[in-house]
Design a protein around this nucleic acid. Sequence first.
DNA 1: CTGTGCGGGTAAC
DNA 2: GTTACCCGCACAG
Length: 324
Amino acid sequence: MLGITDDASMDQEDSALPNGEMFSWDINDIKLPKNVKRTDRFQEWPDSYIKCIYSADDKNAQRHLSSWAMRNTNNHNSRILKKSCLGVVICSNDCSVPPARKMYLRPAICDKARQKQQRKSCPNCNGPLKLIPCRGHGGYPVTNFWRHEGPYIFFQSKGAHDHPRPETKAEAEARRSLQKTHMSASSRVKRNRDMERVYTERRKNMFQRHKENRMSMEEMRLKDGSKWEPTIKVGYHSFRSNVGTVGEDVYEGKTHLNCNSNNIPTTFCQLPLEESYFIADSGHHYYQNSLPTKGSEWHTEEERKYTTLDCCNNEMFFNFVPLR
DNA sequence: CTGTGCGGGTAAC
DNA sequence: GTTACCCGCACAG
């Protein structure tokens, strides 16, 4: 999506492809493009092997944000910030909320908070929670790289997420806020305000983002073949259908929201994610029961049993009113 | 309390 | 050399 004008350091063609696929640079290059025709719109859900050039004024890029749960990783290089994906937190019981919806919680970024999070129980069935680690980059978590260079912020993603999208940061924060307030009358007001903010922001960005996210992975593979490692797994394809890649068109889906009910949005997998919440169609069984335990942060059976009942009730979680 | 970034350190390859 | 990951620390909101 980027255009780059003549640059002595660039000896490859400067073809500008949609969605950040300006592959004539790598995050590790000594010199990066200096003359960028057009910077990218911020990608909230960067996936696959994409590269973006953001304006240094982009607030989201400045904060190295992502809606994936990304944690800082030490790469012993102060010029390039590296982050790796933590995956998604699901219910070990594979429970569903009628009619057949699942929850995809956001893993806490802080190690301590994440361990604490896993001692809590599923807000729906009180079963133990389980962290599904990301293995989208040759069996390791997807990594994101950020590098500030002059008026630009360069971004590069390696790997394709092989798990559902977690809640966004805003959603997780809104939910935490709800848990604290125990749904008092005043908290309902706050809840609605929080959720309204979330949905308003999502709606604002949804069309542009989905347009941008439909870049073919095959095209990217051709452009970046040396780095490509297939990560397709059982259950993966059905998941991919909700992230709008591989040529699949999320806009082919159905109604986005139950606008006139007190219930959660309609089926997750048919939704543009911006309009959905952290609940998804249980028809999409990924591999939560077949993943190796390595990397998942359940340590002992004892720990699994150590669930608390202090989560909010179903109504608190599932009675959202996506205000418009 | 949690998110974020930094950097020392270790291990595997 | 690279990459992944652990840890503690400092700072911010």
